[in-house]
Structures are given as structure tokens and as C-alpha cells.
Design a protein around this nucleic acid. Structure first.
Lengths: 263, 263
DNA sequence: AGAATAGTGTCTCTTAGACATTATTAC
DNA sequence: GTAATAATGTCTAAGAGACACTATTCT
């Protein structure tokens, strides 16, 4: 147990060892990338990593250990970047264009000292499977990986230049999210445990990129019978204090399973 | 050109050559499977292949040529089984469990004469990407592949025992189809060019596995303004002859793009 | 005429959407 | 009080769903 942890630690702290071992440790030619989404009360944000030398950003990602289900491998990747053990995540697309990593060599020049086997492994054609995760942003402790020195939340309208096809991966994730909205537990996984109706509404407005009517939203959500209203009010502003709500988890997930109607 | 065709033909007519060449020709560890769906006026059917020796059935599938996009490789696979050049198809999920081909060896015993490299290639862990295709059943000329001797349409409620996780792949495809129904050009790709309102309705009833009200369905579809009514009626029964309809392709695809409301 | 299926109309109930009114709270 | 935001109510038009009526065709 502690041995396994140590050997894993070693692998993850030395890029050269990591690549030399890759051929035996990982499935060939496939990686996974995670669009990890959080909501800070104002905006949807995505967790990004910055390459160590250049000003190029990327999604958290990695390779698939030969012995693990892809879902499990992705869970490990997301856990390593966020510290979260429990999380909601789901695959949304396999990106399989043959030219998708045509520019990869550029970023790997510094690894020319690698053995030819390792070098070949890295430079083979790669496909990648896209996952998105929905996390409580306040619970996340962002942590860069071997190849990066910054790991932080970035708002969707402030995305920097991204490596390879990572911009397309994010765009695809968001389109998927919007289309599947009625089947995804967005509220319970992005909002804090207790939240106001305004926060709930703003979250959906952020996802859909459109304004919703306040009165109608409130009426609709209350009618769904998935919310528990708490009498403790949120204080602070020079105005009427809003109620705090909490999801009735069972009823909420039942509705989501059947795709019944937030929007 | 004709050389290329010949060499391809040779490869596809000899299983041993096919597997010996696989290591150089295909991406390692990944395959694709296609849920090809057709509608015969009564039922949704899926195109299946039967293994040559045993009574086990499978989806059309294959490996990914190293130089092709996955979408293109799948197009080639579906074209080879159906004869169709133009078709609507879409990826829906990557199946990545580590145990998904645990039983594969059983079916490959007869290939023990293969070189160890070829044997290793076949016996490595495989993941598979699922695609579905929507085709006009009357245009299809089913054709078995190297490993099979029967290729035919099977109704969804009469599926035989399927290899590996192919049953799960079909189930997942159908769930995806139902959820994305408003975004998929199901009608125009499954119905013949001219069709009756009853056929249109029956198609949706088959997909959704539920009865719909005749009057309401007709009213709704006509209101969508995607149908062209022809005055030539369908004759034959001892009853009022129904109108024949045709989709207005532009208006139809515009509605589908925006996910506007069949159901 | 009768059987079968198609096309259209009608009624009710629910919902969506726009908007108005009342309720709190800090200053 | 006023400003700001929350909660709730009202009105209308559109739509869903159940079902009834009329039309056409063949036997």
C-alpha cells in the first residue's frame, strides 16, 4: 500500500521516468481530457493548467493505465487535480481526427534524450476521450501536474489560448451540457449545499447564456417539488432577505433520471 | 488506384493476412462498432452479422486505419456492410471497461497459427467506440465480412445472443437516440422519400416504445411546417386513402438543428 | 350499408411568458 | 421615507391530451 503510493509518487515527480515507463504502464495512443466545471456564484469556470515554459494552457488530462477502466482512470486524473474523492463526471465524446495532435512535436522537443521506444510512444497518433466533471468549486484544491506550474479556475469567457484541440473539447462539452441539461444533476453538483433562488437561476442563465424571467423560474422550480426551503434567511443587503434552499436529494435525482423539465 | 483496390481486396479475403497486417495497418487497442438502424414500415431493425462457426451474432465493426479519422474509418465500415456511400451516422459512446473483451480468446482459438506479434496484437486490451447510423432499409445490400457468413436485419425485440458487450452497445445507442430525438434527423433518414402520416407516427412510436394520439400527432407535425403534402394518394385498402408526404429538407434540417419539438 | 382507416374539429386543463403587486431590509 | 431585491399573483395565449365527428374507399 505505502509502496504503491511511493512508486506512484516517484513516477509522478519525474517526467523522464514517467515517459520511459509509459509504454508499459498505459494503453497506447489514447488519452483522456477533463473539462472540470465549477460555479463561483457568478460564473461557470473551468479548471485549466498552464505549461511550464510557454504561455499555453491545457485541460487536465492523462493516459489510461492498462489495468483500469477508462472511467476509473479519469476519476484518478480529476482527483489528482482537484483533491476530490467523490465527484460527478461523465464521458461526452471521443476525439478521433487523425490530425488532432499534428503540432504535438513542438512541445516535446525537450524530451529528445528519451529512449527511442519512449519517444516513439509519445509521438504515435493519439486520440483522446473527453469527460466533463461538475464540482463544488469551494471544495477544490487545484494542483498542477508534472508538465505544468499553474492550475486555476478560468471563466468561460476569458479562456486563454489552449493547446491542440482543447478549445474544441470545451466547446463540445458545453454544447453537450446544454442539450442534456434536463438529464444532468447540474444544480446539486455545482451549487453549495444551501443557496438562494437567485443563485439557482443565475447558474442556469450562465449555462444557457440567456436571461430567464425571475417570477416564472421561481414558480417552475418550486412546482417541481425538489427544494427544501429553510427559514434561516440570508442577511446582508439593503433589501429583502432571500430564503435559503436545499435540494431534496432523492426527489431531485428522481426528476433528473427521468429528464423532467428544468428548462 | 486499381492496385490499391486489389491489395485491399486481398487483405479482406484472407483472415490470416488480415491479422498479420493488422499491427502495421490499424491503431492498437481500439475498434469501432456500428448500430445500423433501419425501418421497414413496421419495425426498427438493426443490421447484425453471424459468426461463421457458432450461433453468435455481432454488430458490424472493425479497426481504425492509422491514417484515417475515426469518423472516416467508421464510414468505410458501414459502407462495406451496406453498400451505401451517403449515410447519416454519429458517434455516441466510447466503451472502455477493462474487462469488456475478457472472453475474446475463446473466439480466437483457431488463430493460434498466427505469428506471436499478430497474436499479441489481437489479444491486447481493446476499447471500442460506438456509432449509430440511420439508413433507408430498402437501399441496403447487406454483406457479411471476413469473420461472418450472414448479414441481415433483425427486429429490436428479436435480438439473438450477441458477442461481448454488443447488447449493451445497442441498448446504449437506443437510449441515446431517445434522449437526443429532437436533435436527430430520424424521419428523413429512416422513412422512404414519400410516406404517410401513419408511417411517420409509427416510426416515432417504435422508437419511443409508446403509443401516441393520432389526431394530436398529425396536428403537431403539420404545424411544424416541414412537410410537403402530395395530392397523389396511396391506394389499396378498403378505407380512405391517406395523403403521401415528403419532407421539406431545408426546413426539416433547420428544425432539427435547433432541436425543435417532435416530442 | 358496413368496416376500416384518414382527416379534422372541439373541449378542457396545464403551462409559458410577460408583467404587476406586495413584502422585507438597510440606510 | 427610499432604494433594492425577494416573493407572489394575474392575465393571456399557446399547447397538450382526450376524444368526437366527418370523409373516403372497398366489399
Amino acid at each position: 500500500m505505502s509502496n504503491e503510493h511511493n512508486s506512484s509518487l516517484t513516477l509522478e515527480t519525474n517526467i523522464f521516468e514517467y515517459f520511459e515507463a509509459a509504454k508499459d504502464r498505459f494503453l497506447p495512443g489514447i488519452s483522456a481530457d477533463a473539462v472540470i466545471l465549477g460555479y463561483d456564484g457568478q460564473h461557470i469556470k473551468v479548471l485549466l493548467l498552464k505549461a511550464q515554459d510557454v504561455d499555453i494552457w491545457m485541460l487536465p488530462g492523462g493516459f489510461i493505465e492498462k489495468e483500469y477502466d477508462i472511467d476509473i482512470a479519469v476519476h484518478r486524473i480529476v482527483k489528482a487535480r482537484t483533491g476530490l474523492e467523490e465527484l460527478y463526471f461523465q464521458q461526452f465524446k471521443l476525439f478521433g481526427r487523425s490530425d488532432r495532435n499534428a503540432h504535438k512535436q513542438e512541445h516535446l522537443k525537450k524530451f529528445q534524450e528519451l529512449s527511442s521506444a519512449a519517444h516513439d510512444w509519445i509521438n504515435q497518433r493519439f486520440i483522446t476521450v473527453g469527460y466533463f466533471a461538475l464540482v463544488h468549486i469551494e471544495d477544490v484544491a487545484p494542483k498542477p501536474d508534472l508538465f505544468t506550474n499553474i492550475c486555476e479556475w478560468v471563466a468561460l469567457d476569458q479562456l486563454p489560448p489552449l493547446i491542440l484541440d482543447h478549445q474544441e473539447i470545451i466547446d463540445t462539452a458545453l454544447t453537450y451540457l446544454r442539450r442534456q441539461l434536463n438529464y444532468l444533476p447540474v444544480g446539486i453538483n455545482l451549487l453549495p449545499e444551501r443557496f438562494t433562488m437567485s443563485q439557482f437561476q443565475n447558474l442556469y442563465e450562465e449555462i444557457l447564456k440567456q436571461k430567464l424571467d425571475r417570477g416564472n423560474f421561481q414558480r417552475k422550480m418550486l412546482k417541481l417539488d425538489i427544494l427544501i426551503r429553510h427559514e434561516k434567511l440570508k442577511k446582508g443587503g439593503a433589501h429583502k432577505a432571500p430564503y435559503l434552499y436545499e435540494f431534496d436529494s432523492d426527489k431531485y435525482h428522481e426528476k433528473v433520471r427521468n429528464g423532467i423539465g428544468f428548462i
